[in-house]
């Protein structure tokens, strides 16, 4: 293969985002193997990575990692452009919107757990909305909302705690 004339400069930002995205994809794939009591209820472990990136490098990087994770992760699992992909995308977009607002909160009072919980609730909100508009055009989907909200509460808290701990350890190293 002859070297192409066009060369895309790779910045340090690109490398960092790529590495975090790789970690997030690995968690997505690992999580896909876990059994779930109800389709759609997952721990969302990849969001721990998104949280760490958000708190260390800002929202722009977190958005890159989150969206790349959704696209590449579903490519690996074989879900690209399946309904699950669009639900994941809706969840990612709405939780990124929540992250954008949540990261403005005073860091002195609010830590990773708050940010994680807000993102988790936005995530299920976006998914339920898309499901209502597109997949199940019936208010019956909202019947499941309490279950999803419970999952968001539990996993949002746990993921936030893990992210807080990872960041604390990074900072003390």
């Amino acid at each position: 293969m002859t070297p192409s004339g066009i060369e895309l400069p790779i910045t340090e930002d690109d490398r960092r985002i790529a590495r975090y995205t790789a970690a997030a994809i690995a968690l997505t794939v690992a999580e896909a193997a876990l059994p779930s009591p109800l389709p759609g209820i997952k721990p969302g472990l990849a969001n721990i990575i998104v949280l760490v990136v958000l708190l260390r490098y800002g929202w722009r990087d977190a958005a890159w990692v989150s969206l790349l994770r959704v696209v590449a992760g579903s490519l690996v699992i074989g879900q690209l452009f399946a309904p699950g992909f669009f639900l994941a995308l809706a969840g990612a977009v709405s939780s990124l919107a929540a992250l954008f607002l949540a990261v403005q909160l005073p860091r002195r009072w609010f830590g990773a757990v708050t940010i994680s919980l807000l993102a988790a609730f936005a995530h299920i909100g976006g998914q339920l909305l898309l499901a209502r508009l597109w997949l199940v055009p019936h208010d019956g989907v909202f019947y499941l909302a309490p279950l999803f909200a419970t999952a968001a509460l539990i996993f949002g808290t746990i993921n936030g705690l893990i992210a807080a701990r990872l960041i604390r350890q990074v900072e003390t190293i």
Partner: peptide
Amino acid sequence: WHKYLKVGDWLVLLLSCALVVSS
């Protein structure tokens, strides 16, 4: 683990629990 929770985090956690129960 509780050392990773700030005052606001407890508040948000409490509010979230209330939200889930009321849902």
